[in-house]
C-alpha cells in the first residue's frame, strides 16, 4: 500500500476504480502526482500522515471540531479528517509541507514566527493553512473579521492575539 509515483504511461486520472474493499486514488500532493491503493475508509488526513508520511498536518479531534487537520483541496481550505481520500480523486492537495519555496518560508509562516502566533505548535499547521486560504476569501478588514474567519481553528494554548496579528501583518493591515 505504499505510494508510488504516478506511472507516466498510464492515463493520469483514469475512471475511478470501483472495488469492494480498496480504492485506487490518484492525488497531486504539493505538486507531486501520487497513486494510492487504500481501504476506502482512509480519510485524506490518514492518507497524508500514515501513507504519505506527511505528518505536518495534525490530527486533533478527528471529528471536524478543531481545524488542526486543515489542508487545501483545489485551492480551498477544507478539513482532511472529514474528507475520504477516495473522494479527493484527482484533486490537487496542498499541505503545510507545500507552502515554503525551498528554504524560503511562506510569508504567513514567517509572520506566525514574528508575531508569536503559537506556543505548543500542535494547531499551527492548521492555523497557517487556514490563514493562507483566508487571503483569497472575502474577509473584512478588521481584527474581528479575522477572528470570525479563523474561528474554525482552535488553539488550546490561546495564541489567538498573535495569530490575528500574523494574519493582519500579511494582509498589510498592521505592522
Amino acid at each position: 500500500m505504499s505510494p508510488t509515483e504516478l506511472d507516466t504511461q498510464a492515463p493520469p486520472f483514469a475512471e475511478p476504480h470501483v472495488a469492494d474493499q480498496t480504492a485506487d486514488v490518484a492525488l497531486i500532493v504539493n505538486g507531486r502526482a501520487l497513486r494510492l491503493v487504500i481501504d476506502p475508509r482512509v480519510t485524506l488526513l490518514d492518507a497524508l500522515r500514515e501513507h504519505l508520511q506527511l505528518t505536518g498536518t495534525k490530527k486533533g479531534c478527528d471529528h471536524g471540531q478543531c481545524g488542526a487537520c486543515t489542508v487545501h483541496v483545489g485551492g480551498r481550505r477544507v478539513l482532511s479528517c472529514l474528507t475520504l481520500a477516495a473522494a479527493a480523486q484527482g484533486q490537487s492537495i496542498t499541505t503545510i509541507e507545500g507552502l515554503a519555496e525551498s528554504d524560503r518560508l511562506h510569508p504567513m509562516q514567517q509572520a506566525f514566527i514574528d508575531c508569536d502566533g503559537f506556543q505548543c505548535g500542535y494547531c499551527t499547521a492548521g492555523q497557517i493553512m487556514s490563514a493562507v486560504a483566508l487571503l483569497q476569501e472575502p474577509c473584512g478588514p478588521d481584527d474581528d473579521d479575522v477572528r470570525e474567519s479563523m474561528s474554525g481553528n482552535i488553539c488550546r494554548c490561546g495564541a489567538y492575539p498573535g495569530i490575528v496579528a500574523a494574519v493582519q501583518a500579511v494582509r498589510g493591515r498592521r505592522r
Binding site: G64, L79, L82, T83, L84, A86, A87, Q89
Partner: peptide, 25 residues
C-alpha cells in the same frame, strides 16, 4: 456522499453504517 461533513463524522462514531457510499461529487 457529498461534502461528508455529517456523514463521515457519524460513520466514525458508528452511528451511520452504510454498506455502500456513493460519491456524487
Amino acid at each position: 456522499l457529498a461534502g461528508g461533513t455529517t456523514l463521515v463524522d457519524l460513520m466514525k462514531l458508528h452511528v451511520e453504517r452504510p454498506r455502500t457510499v456513493v460519491d456524487i461529487n
